[in-house]
Design a protein around this nucleic acid. Structure first.
Lengths: 242, 242
DNA sequence: CGGTGGTTTGATCAAAATCAAGTGAGGTGG
DNA sequence: CCACCTCACTTGATTTTGATCAAACCACCG
């Protein structure tokens, strides 16, 4: 499997790409790198000149505020381009960091800009990706603000399972998610101690388990109901119909 | 002043547009409508076939969850296109509603699609707008999650003042913001009662006042410090340099 | 002049934070 | 091979922030 295959699969879920588009995507000059866990990919105030496609591993997007607290704003999984926005926003307004060891394919901004100038369908597909990312942020806002901690965690897991499934990385409603409870807390806006208690509660309610860097959803319909998860905001395949 | 002037002014802050682009923007067929306060513009699950440009008033983007609570995810002011994402995401995943009485200019999706196909610079400018919106969502996530209620409110006001200023709608660090304390609570993830107490605290600390649908920032540098506000995420003018 | 919606104040309650002190597993060096 | 270190996880006790409940208060409006 080539590095860009997962991305193409994801793009084709919603946007029609012809052979020339696909060829151009395969022809992109990429530089593949392996990174350790907790390694910075881009830092706030950087001015990157390349984007990275996640081939393997989990990536987080986070910001550190005045009090020293860190907030994780999104997770990115294989097939995602976490820093696609840097193509048009010069200066990073947050950090992008590996959560687990990861394999990334870097593409120069200039090559991407050439690609989207000559292949409007690809441009539209990428634009749409950034719009879905934005929809995920909106749901993240809702999740942090209106749901109590257990439903909040449940919702995050329901979303991740769904996105993993879409790129074929979930089997039997389980998926790899190598993250510490402290980091989960930074994503959910709760302390590591509270994450621990919430995880126990969800496990004892038969919703999900987290062990050995793996999430296992015990009862998916129940989890979805408990979390108030509605997949509409992921906009899977709703672009096909245009 | 024409309806689209504020939008063009905003686009030109960051993207170079030539005369043909500007002409094409002015040539867009628009339908201007006035709406009362608290009127729905688009609802979750709708499939809109037009976008709206805010000419006057304040617009909110919100979602209602299973518990019945409503979360406001963004505010939009004149010059913004709050539902630009509907151009590529078929189905609305949230509601768009007027906060105050508003004047809106509606543009058909088809006309916008023609425009961006023939004018790539405009396409890029709009794409960039959606990326800045996403950056604002990210900061909103941080704000809701890591800051205590008073700093949270202060941060929202610091951001709004900044955005109002950019379109010339702020004088002497004050601006029109016709919103109830209950709605402010829905934006900040706190109750209306708590909003009231926090507003009193900020006023007595000499940071800002809210009266008669108007926010007056008493001490801007102090407010910015108190809120931990860093304008980098608004990406004003950082696209000019490309 | 009474109704209504928004604001204000006070009293009590609950979710999650904080503080503190464990346990347990993996990794390193003597 | 074992002692020790470190880091993640776990558990319990206490505190805090903001929620909830309840009752005025006030201004505008029909």
């Amino acid at each position: 499997m080539r590095s860009v295959d997962l991305m193409i699969r994801k793009l084709r879920l919603h946007t029609a790409l012809d052979d020339a588009d696909i060829e151009a995507l395969y022809a992109l000059p990429i530089r593949v790198r392996e990174l350790d866990e907790r390694t910075s990919i881009a830092r706030q105030y950087d001015r990157p000149n390349e984007c990275c496609l996640v081939v393997r591993g989990t990536i987080s997007r986070s910001k550190i505020v005045e009090s020293g607290k860190r907030q994780i704003m999104s997770f990115h999984i294989p097939g995602d381009i976490p820093d696609l926005e840097s193509l048009f926003l010069q200066k990073m307004d947050h950090d992008i960091t590996t959560v687990s060891p990861a394999i990334l394919a870097f593409v120069a901004h200039q090559d991407l800009k050439n690609l989207i100038r000559t292949h409007p369908a690809v441009a539209q597909a990428y634009w749409r990706c950034t719009l879905v990312d934005a929809a995920i942020y909106r749901e993240w806002i809702v999740n942090l603000s209106v749901r109590p901690a257990p439903a909040r965690l449940a919702h995050l897991m329901a979303e991740l399972r769904h996105r993993m499934e879409a790129v074929g990385l979930s089997v039997d409603n389980g998926f790899e998610f190598p993250i510490s409870q402290a980091e989960l807390g930074e994503a959910l806006g709760i302390t590591a101690v509270h994450v621990n208690r919430v995880l126990q509660a969800l496990r004892s309610e038969g919703l999900l388990e987290m062990r050995n860097n793996r999430v296992t959803v015990a009862n998916l319909p129940k989890l979805i109901r408990y979390a108030g998860f509605d997949e509409v905001y992921l906009h899977e395949a709703d672009g096909r119909l245009q």
